[in-house]
């Protein structure tokens, strides 16, 4: 393993840690209707853009497990998992880049994050519906949560994508 590979991995892990620790944080001005940007998803999209599809999916599953661990209180039996949504989002992001549908710039990354945020929240809503929650309640909440989370996450995505892509490009040189 080369030194810059290790450096890249350490950088990725550190930025991931920062994103995870930012999840429970509610800074004034960063929330909309009590919903904060989904930093984990932003990190996942940034990471998956230039990776093989399988690695992206594995990362998605790992991040889903992390987010489950941070939110699931063990007293409840049936709680939707984040692994499915994040794995699909990561796989799709990796595929998008493979097909060269879009270039890697601020706008397209923000667009991908927007779409993936809606996808992730929709998959949670589908799981909730399957678990027998009342449909009208779930889909009313889904509208609010998916849109708010998508708007906030996509607007904040350059804040993470810019330094990370600069860092990885600097490593490649």
């Amino acid at each position: 393993m080369r030194h810059d590979n290790i450096l890249g991995l350490v950088g990725a892990l550190l930025s991931l840690l920062v994103c995870i620790l930012a999840l429970p944080l509610r800074l004034p001005g960063m929330t909309l209707m009590d919903i904060a940007p989904n930093w984990l998803l932003i990190w996942l999209v940034t990471w998956s853009l230039n990776r093989p599809v399988l690695i992206a999916i594995a990362t998605g599953i790992a991040l889903g497990l992390l987010q489950d661990g941070m939110t699931i209180t063990d007293s409840q039996a049936l709680i939707p998992t984040h692994t499915i949504g994040l794995a699909i989002a990561a796989g799709l992001t990796a595929l998008l880049q493979k097909q060269r549908y879009i270039q890697e710039d601020f706008i397209s990354v923000a667009l991908i994050v927007f779409g993936m945020a809606v996808l992730v929240e929709t998959i949670i809503a589908i799981q909730l519906s399957l678990f027998g929650w009342s449909l009208d309640q779930v889909w009313m909440l889904h509208q609010r949560i998916a849109l708010t989370s998508a708007i906030l996450s996509s607007l904040w995505s350059p804040a993470l994508h810019f330094p990370m892509s600069r860092f990885w490009r600097w490593l490649d040189k």
Partner: peptide
Amino acid sequence: GLGAAWTLKQTQAEVLVET
């Protein structure tokens, strides 16, 4: 990576919350 994530999930992400 998957193993570490699974361990964290099983421990309710205690390390992360404490950090």
